[in-house]
Design a protein around this nucleic acid. Structure first.
Ligand SMILES: Nc1ccn([C@H]2C[C@H](O)[C@@H](COP(=O)(O)OP(=O)(O)OP(=O)(O)O)O2)c(=O)n1
Length: 621
DNA sequence: GCGGATCAC
DNA sequence: TATGGTGATCCGC
């Protein structure tokens, strides 16, 4: 045996009558799930910090009244009804599981637990840093008078709000008009991304001193591995994090909260414990970790959202520890992946590896816009065109093309539809996006929509490995082959153009199709080194804010971050080394490969956008 | 492989 | 009057 048996707080191995339906007992009649519907409308933030003194019942009532009758409300109601049905079916299914089946499942679960337990690594110190009410806090720096007033940041829908506003029950993702009913004095500021990016970069600069390979997930969140730093400095980890937070505050005026633990999952959850402006450390000790996880409400676990929470609660699993108590039953009900996820949560296991964000490869890029519901084809074409143009800008900035195009529609009823098609060749121009998008849209007519979106997947990185290598491969390929395809030389020309310009233009269709075939052979494997498993969502999401935020603000896809992604990175599959040298980009502060070519390429990008950003800033000041 | 759903932020 | 945008992953066909 590799590991000792987990401290097992006994497990239920007999059927304990399912139904005493814990929460709101839904009598099957349609509208009587108004209890859970209120819960749904309240959104996820009820369990977030700053909600202590809030009169949830009163807030919930106002939200309910304000929403009632709207299309959105009706849609939520439908979804809630479906979920309730699903939950009831699960409960029924649970009741049918025999004791014999439970005993068999127990054996399997125990085997799984031993297997996962064997992977436990308590040698690393992982930190999760999370800025407090980030956008709002940045705004307070410029508007100190707002500190004592309830205010939020966003437009139409709130992105976040300060803690004063949270006392009223205001929260992120809430509709602005609803928020103002809850808190009539609420001030709502527009987003100002250049400011947030600047502050975020200042923070990342400090983080780099503690872990040059830190992983910045978004503008306001990052993981660090401070094992080495602590050892080198011979300092206690809590002292180190405390000092890091103090330095961040002193240089930026922003407060951050932090979680410290043996892996990213524990660190992430811990960072919420003493928010705002606090930290929480979980000892690198199995018992300490298990105890910390044990009493957590399941909804606090990253990856357990509203739906899974409902299902777990219905099975009488309220806390993380109860996952074990009911594990045999859960095994019979949930998929293997979900079961693995849940058991790893119960055990407090997670990733101990922190990799800089540029080692993750983007898998898709898309654009979508909401608007007043329309059904007129001319208007829809106009929206589609707009989205296509925006998507082209992003493709250009990222130097990507896609082999598949997806169309997303949201009907006036809020029902969503998505269609996806392989393209004859990788595409990255607005005209192609529009052309093929329109074909898909036409098949859905007649329709009334309130949102149109386009997304490409199966991406092709047109600057993969940098120009020179690609050029050489192109040469080889060109010589190897005799058949058709007229534009090989054009294609090579395109690469040279990039080499000299530093800022490649969109390639023509033919060129791209060609280029792709060349690059094809050199496609690398996914640099998949995940922070935790699938529900941890700690994947390559860093590019998101930057694109998102900048465009939301300016409606122009200015190159903000080249995000070199996996460009010029060694395969991580070969043995252990792969410790690519990294440096902080002096311009944007992000971690990039120290490799000369990659670095220069990246810096060029940053510089080229610098002027634009400055201009934008001026406009705003 | 596609479309629907769920989740994070 | 009225409820966002980007990206990832999983599941069931
Ligand atoms: N539905 C959401 C949730 C969040 N965000 C954005 C705005 C937030 O400022 C940022 C970070 O989100 P957090 O969940 O970390 O929340 P905050 O940092 O705003 O506050 P806190 O962490 O103090 O609770 O992500 C968003 O656009 N849409």
């Amino acid at each position: 045996m590799l590991v000792s048996e987990p401290a097992s707080p006994k497990r239920e191995n007999t059927i304990s009558n399912p139904e005493s339906s814990p929460k709101h007992s839904e009598s099957g009649t349609s509208d009587e799930s108004s209890g859970t519907l209120r819960h749904r409308l309240l959104g996820p933030s009820i369990q977030k910090s700053g909600q202590d003194g809030v009169n949830q019942a009163a807030v919930s009532e106002i939200i309910y009244q304000a929403s009632q009758g709207s299309k959105y409300f009706e849609h939520q109601k439908r979804k809630e009804k479906e979920l309730t049905k699903k939950v009831e079916s699960i409960v029924k299914q649970a009741a049918k599981v025999s004791n014999q089946e439970l005993e068999a499942a127990e054996v399997r679960v125990d085997a799984l637990i031993r297997q996962y337990e064997a992977t436990r690594d308590l040698t690393q110190t992982i930190v999760h840093v999370d800025c407090d009410a980030f956008y709002a806090s940045v705004e307070e720096l410029d508007h100190p008078e707002l500190k004592s007033k309830p205010f939020a940041v966003g437009k139409g829908v709130l992105c976040t709000c300060n803690y004063v506003a949270r006392k009223f029950g205001v929260r992120s993702a809430m509709a602005e008009f609803v928020a103002k009913k809850i808190c009539p004095e609420l001030i709502v500021l527009r987003l100002n991304f250049p400011k947030y990016i600047e502050k975020s970069n200042a923070i990342r600069m400090i983080l780099s001193e503690y872990d040059p390979r830190h992983c910045a997930m978004t503008l306001d969140e990052a993981y660090l591995n401070i094992t080495e730093y602590c050892a080198n400095m011979n300092k206690d980890r809590e002292e180190v994090v405390s000092e890091m937070r103090r330095r961040i505050f002193e240089t930026t005026g922003l407060t951050v909260s932090a979680g410290i633990g043996p892996n990213s999952r524990v660190a992430k959850i811990a960072s919420n414990v003493n928010k705002p402006n606090g930290q929480c450390a979980i000892a690198n000790d199995r018992e300490a970790v298990m105890e910390f996880m044990c009493n957590l409400p399941v909804r606090k676990i990253t990856g357990i959202g509203y739906v899974l929470e409902r299902q777990l609660l219905a099975l009488d699993v309220n806390s993380c520890g109860e996952i074990y108590r009911k594990s045999a039953l859960l095994y019979q009900i949930f998929t293997d992946t979900t079961m693995t996820f849940l058991l790893n949560c119960y055990l407090g296991l997670g990733s101990t590896e922190v990799k800089p964000i540029d080692q993750y490869e983007r898998k898709s890029v898309g654009c979508e816009r909401s608007f007043r519901a329309i059904s007129d084809m001319a208007q829809m074409k106009q929206k589609l065109q707009h989205v296509a143009e925006d998507l082209e800008k992003d493709c250009k900035r990222l130097n990507l093309a896609g082999r598949k195009l997806g169309l997303k529609l949201k009907k006036a009823t809020f029902e969503q539809i998505s269609r996806q098609r392989p393209m004859p060749r990788p595409i990255n121009t607005a005209s192609d996006f529009y052309r093929y998008g329109l074909q898909m849209l036409e098949k859905e007519l007649p329709i009334t929509v309130r949102l149109i979106g386009l997304r490409i997947t199966d991406l092709v990185n047109l600057s993969h490995e940098g120009p020179m290598k690609t050029f050489l491969k192109g040469q080889r390929r060109h010589n190897d082959r005799l058949e058709d395809e007229p534009s090989t030389s054009m294609n090579i020309h395109a690469e040279f153009k990039e080499l000299f310009d530093g800022s490649p233009d969109m390639h023509d269709d033919e060129e791209i199709g060609e280029l792709v075939m060349i690059i094809q052979g050199s496609q690398e494997e996914d640099a998949s080194g995940v922070i935790d498993d699938y529900r941890s969502s700690a994947k390559a999401t860093a590019a998101r804010d930057i694109k998102n935020e900048y465009e939301l603000q300016h409606n122009t896809a200015t190159p903000l971050m080249p995000v070199p992604e996996s460009e010029s990175l060694p395969l991580s599959t070969d043995s252990g080394d792969s410790a690519t040298a990294l440096v902080s980009c002096p311009i944007c502060g992000n971690q990039v490969s120290a490799d000369d070519q990659a670095l220069n390429h990246h810096v060029d990008w940053c510089l080229s956008r610098g002027a634009i950003r400055e201009a934008v800033k001026e406009t705003f000041n």
